[in-house]
Design a protein around this nucleic acid. Structure first.
Lengths: 236, 236
DNA sequence: TCCTTATGCCAACACCATTGACCTTATCTT
DNA sequence: AAGATAAGGTCAATGGTGTTGGCATAAGGA
């Protein structure tokens, strides 16, 4: 069972594949990401990835322990991309809002990877950097430590949770997704008004809202609540 | 492709399987839930479920359009369990809080199933009942329709998103989970204080917090924000 | 130049969901 | 009571998946 899996920087002999491609972790992860984006929700498989690389599927196992390890590598790449170019301005509410939207957006741009990855604590440098940044923003803004930790926790988990939820919707296979999205137009919109008065009364608003992410609204509500806690602390 | 799939209440001829089991949607869903609990989310397959029921896998297609439809039915069952015994008291904030905690709890009691279903819109009766209830609570409380729809959406997605995230943590295979949970004790708690001052300063609070769900805090923040919006509306 | 072995390829395995053909028997009709 | 109908079971087959062990070949150190 013990697959050796030579770490990337210890590789010396790079033999090209039959079709002349020289493999590397980097190339594999990037190709996988491109396939996920282009081929969309149809998904990633060892066979297809191999075909795209011009290599036999089993060759991938020389680089990753399995598809799960590959997925984690992809997830790590996503966290990195979310933080790229982000900088603190000093306005805590604005900074947190920006960061939340970036995390959410980065995951959503690769739903398949997000589904498998968003719930995991990686402990890698980029993730730690994000945690430190959020805690710093809150403590600098004036939240006392216990409060800062509570809000940090809610903030980061809510971002990841919505990322995973929304990514899950995008990652559904084609028939399932259109069925889900159609729910609000079909079933819900035609419910009898006497039995479901509230859904019925708001059906147009619902149809307009429900196929978008609720994350921005939820994020703003969390930040608004944090701000009023802060004001209460200052007043009292 | 058109599989007939007679709806449950139109079924008349119930032929027992070769092993004498009489099938029904209910029995299938309950068996699937039991299998998920016992063998994990990878442990549910048409073949295994068939074997557990003493029936051929293909028999399931007489009851569900496919594994996807079965998954939706499982999700509906979980929502139903969340609503069992829940009743509106008229205090909107208390009612929503109670409902949110119930949904979260119901999914967490079957983490493997939650991972599969928490992101899906089922459009079945009990899900619709939950939606109608939440909308009703908000509109009755005095939120104007557009506001009620926004908050409803954020509330319900927040509940499901956290349910999925927290369930995902519980559903991890044993080695992965203890590794994830140990992060806060090991890696994070030992970071150099000069490089990560904020994590360092709060490490005890973090260790105490991070292995629990952030959902109750996030939920309370969402409700607090909703309440102040309502007050602003009344004042203005 | 020769040897070692990293790394590619191939074939096979076990599993998966799903489908179409077939058969059996519960229920309805006469 | 007998026959007709079709619901609902079984069986066999298709084409997909991740993964593995054996083998071949060429890269790079000696």
């Amino acid at each position: 069972m013990a697959k050796p899996v030579v770490p990337e920087d210890a590789r010396r002999r790079r033999r090209p594949t039959r079709r002349g491609v020289v493999l590397s972790e980097r190339l594999i992860v990037e190709t996988a990401l491109r396939m996920l984006r282009e081929h969309g929700s149809a998904g990633l498989s060892a066979r297809r990835l191999g075909a795209a690389l011009g290599a036999d599927p089993s060759t991938l196992y020389r680089y990753f322990d399995g598809m799960d390890a590959l997925t984690l590598a992809i997830g790590e790449e996503l966290i990195g991309r979310a933080l790229d170019g982000w900088a603190v301005t000093g306005q805590w509410r604005h900074d947190l809002r920006e960061l939340g939207l970036r995390i959410h957006g980065a995951y959503l741009s690769h739903p398949q990877a997000a589904v498998l990855t968003a719930g995991r604590v990686t402990g890698r440098p980029r993730e730690i950097a994000a945690d430190e940044a959020v805690l710093g923003i809150l403590r600098t803004a004036g939240f006392p430590d216990p409060e800062a930790v509570l809000i940090y926790h809610a903030f980061i988990d809510q971002s990841l949770a919505f990322a995973a939820l929304d990514a899950g919707a995008l990652a559904l296979s084609e028939p399932s997704r259109t069925s889900d999205e159609g729910q609000w137009e079909s079933t819900y919109a035609r419910l009898p008004a006497d039995e479901y008065p509230h859904i019925s009364a708001t059906r147009r608003l619902l149809a307009a809202r429900m196929n978008h992410s609720a994350y921005p609204v939820a994020l703003d509500m969390l930040l608004a609540s944090a701000e009023s806690r802060l004001q209460a602390l200052r007043a009292g």
